[in-house]
Design a protein around this nucleic acid. Structure first.
Lengths: 219, 219
DNA sequence: TAGATTGTTAATCGATTAACAATC
DNA sequence: TAGATTGTTAATCGATTAACAATC
């Protein structure tokens, strides 16, 4: 039924934001919303919202708008949030521990089943109710537990070395926090990069751009 | 001299990635590179690289290409990495502490000058060589130290409440890790959102999309 | 029914790619 | 000089916005 053939990444990246706003509307007891109202709240155009949603099907009703609960659940389904992709996290340093404890994997379509590190100083310690395992156990663990997703919270060089090995062990998707650039990567493997350093540098540019604009005051 | 008038955000977001690859080339002792070679390494087109760079000036030389060191330093300058924007971090929970210790602010144009939290259980503790301050000290601290950037590692509701107050105190830019959506925000204030939850949900979609494609095997 | 709002097609806008003259 | 590669203009592609007939 779903007509999600080749939906562009631009559209897909907006879905979680729709999901977030619709969840909030639900909490506020709003049951019905038009594309125009939602557009005003989210700072988009009504056209764009209707175009985006119609990539996946006609969820609205002419003359009425959209039912908030229905749309929320449809988007949940489209994103696959009802699934539980078995996930391992590699690198239990500052960042890895924060992500393991801070991120709600379960409500986002994932299930964190193992945490690994190479350093004996953290192996055996507890992170988010999970015992950190040695990298030596990785292969056996993957054979037994069959995780499909790996969260990489390790330095660039380790990521580069580990990537191929993880694909060999059955990993099909990476949530990559390392500075290693997966851009040119394996076929049939999905990579989502979270390059915080890049994000911060972009902010730096924007701050200076804004401040320059102030002093010169162009026409 | 710089002709960076209204450079699109698409271009700006590619600059940190150029910076990263050029830094690596430098480390590998490469002194000269053509747009074609760089494009091959980065998985872009040579046209795009030349277009991007020419938003800021002609850094290359016909028949030769680009000098790696020169280009690296030019991009550093364009991004403002030589500056040190005074920055405070709010929220010393799991994520806040990880960001304070894990992110290299100094090499990215920022200088972390204060960490704040409202919880007495972390106030006074040390994070990345800094003592966590009480939120009660925030106003006085801002008056004295004049930070311009705030990193928000706090829950959505706190962020919503705090945002206006921080702008009042002179904050001009936010690096936002909260689920609060700054999209429709103050004028003359820059916001860079790092919505990890959205990123993870996007990954969920992509994984299912890839796996669906496998079983159906479409023409 | 009349009013409202969708789904969808057409028009516009912006970003990417191709082409090539300029020039090192 | 001849070869290579840029800077820049033109062509293409994709994404966003506008318009409107369909319909609840």
């Amino acid at each position: 039924m779903a007509k999600n053939q080749n939906v562009s990444l631009s559209v897909v990246r907006r879905l979680p934001r729709y999901h977030r706003f619709l969840g909030e509307l639900m909490q506020n007891g709003v049951h019905r919303i038009s594309s125009r109202e939602l557009a005003d709240i989210m700072g988009l155009t009504a056209s764009q919202i209707r175009q985006d949603l119609n990539c996946f099907g006609g969820f609205g009703q002419q003359g009425y708008g959209y039912n908030v609960e229905t749309l929320y659940h449809e988007i949940s389904r489209i994103l696959g949030l009802d699934q539980k992709l078995r996930t391992i996290l590699i690198g239990a340093g500052n960042l890895g521990r924060a992500i393991a404890t801070h991120i709600e994997f379960e409500s986002r379509g994932f299930s964190l089943v193992g945490v690994f590190d190479k350093s004996s100083s953290v192996i055996g310690s507890s992170v988010g109710g999970m015992t950190v395992r040695s990298m030596d156990e990785l292969a056996a663990f993957c054979k037994q537990e069959e995780p499909v997703v790996a969260v990489l919270c390790i330095p660039k060089d380790s990521a580069q070395v580990l990537a191929d090995q993880l694909v060999e062990l059955g990993i099909r998707a990476f949530w990559n926090f390392s500075h290693y650039d997966f851009a040119v990567s394996h076929k049939d493997v999905v990579v989502e990069n979270v390059h915080m350093g890049d994000s911060l540098m972009t902010l730096s540019y924007c701050v200076h751009d804004m401040m320059d604009g102030e002093s010169i005051e162009e026409l």
